[in-house]
């Protein structure tokens, strides 16, 4: 089953799903960083020109700035910015070690030194091909340094679920099946009505009814599972 995730298992038996980020997002992050570096460089040039240094000192300073922007910028940002240069931060990707841990100096320096190899023969041609060939979208620098570029885990938006009267499940369900019920109830508003009822009919052995009633029953189950249903419809008995 292809799911685009990398399932790492820790010794404690916990599975960490990492999602390696593909070339488009990484190229975008690189472009943003390139622009930032360009702007920063221009600003530094402006600053260097301001005091009126001698020509050779000016050249020396500019070379220094160029060197730092080229080599120190990605390394320092990745190490001290938890694996994210500003471009990566905006795009929402992050460099981690291939066992899921944050990167350190060794990884940060290695993967950015190997940029020169990835850049060959021109404009990251080799890096792009390496990324497409590698199953985790790793360029040469990543392979050597043992790093991965992954999507930053995003905060899940809590969607307002249609509430129901909490109800117990008719028979025990596996966790993934319970998730499916919650998913269905959560997303039923986005599904077209016909499809919604089709799926609700499919759940008939679970709910023992069809159509709208089945959907309502699933909402009740979902409320029972999450525990945040409220008694808007008290089943009053005289």
């Amino acid at each position: 089953m292809l799911d685009g995730h990398l399932h790492l298992q820790t010794p404690e038996g916990i599975t960490l799903p990492l999602t390696p980020a593909g070339p488009p997002k990484r190229a975008l992050a690189w472009l943003l960083d390139f622009i930032f570096r360009l702007l920063l460089g221009l600003f530094m040039v402006f600053l260097i020109n301001l005091p009126g240094f001698s020509g050779r000192l000016e050249t020396g300073l500019m070379l220094l700035v160029a060197f730092l922007l080229l080599w120190a910028y990605p390394v320092l940002f990745e190490i001290y910015g938890s694996g994210m240069t500003p471009g990566k931060r905006i795009v929402g990707i992050q460099v981690v070690r291939d066992n899921g841990l944050p990167i350190g100096w060794r990884e940060g320096v290695l993967r950015n030194l190997l940029r020169a190899a990835d850049f060959l023969p021109m404009w990251y041609g080799l890096g792009l091909v390496a990324m497409l060939l590698n199953s985790d979208f790793r360029r040469l620098g990543d392979v050597l340094a043992g790093t991965l570029v992954v999507y930053r885990p995003q905060k899940k938006k809590t969607k307002a679920m249609p509430t129901g009267t909490p109800r117990e499940l008719p028979f025990p369900l596996k966790p993934e099946e319970q998730h499916a019920i919650l998913d269905f109830v959560e997303r039923s508003g986005q599904l077209p009505p016909a499809r919604r009822f089709e799926l609700a009919n499919l759940a008939e052995p679970l709910t023992a009814c069809t159509g709208q009633a089945s959907l309502q029953r699933l909402q009740d189950y979902a409320a029972g599972l999450t525990g945040n249903g409220h008694a808007t419809r008290p089943d009053s008995q005289p």
Binding site: L173, D183, Q190, L191, L199, P205
Partner: peptide, 20 residues
């Protein structure tokens, strides 16, 4: 899959088969 709830259908069908 998002529009038609494919994952939901797959999970429901699997559930029913397990139940059966």
């Amino acid at each position: 899959a998002e529009l038609e709830g494919w994952d939901i259908e797959i999970a429901l069908r699997r559930l029913l088969r397990r139940r059966q």
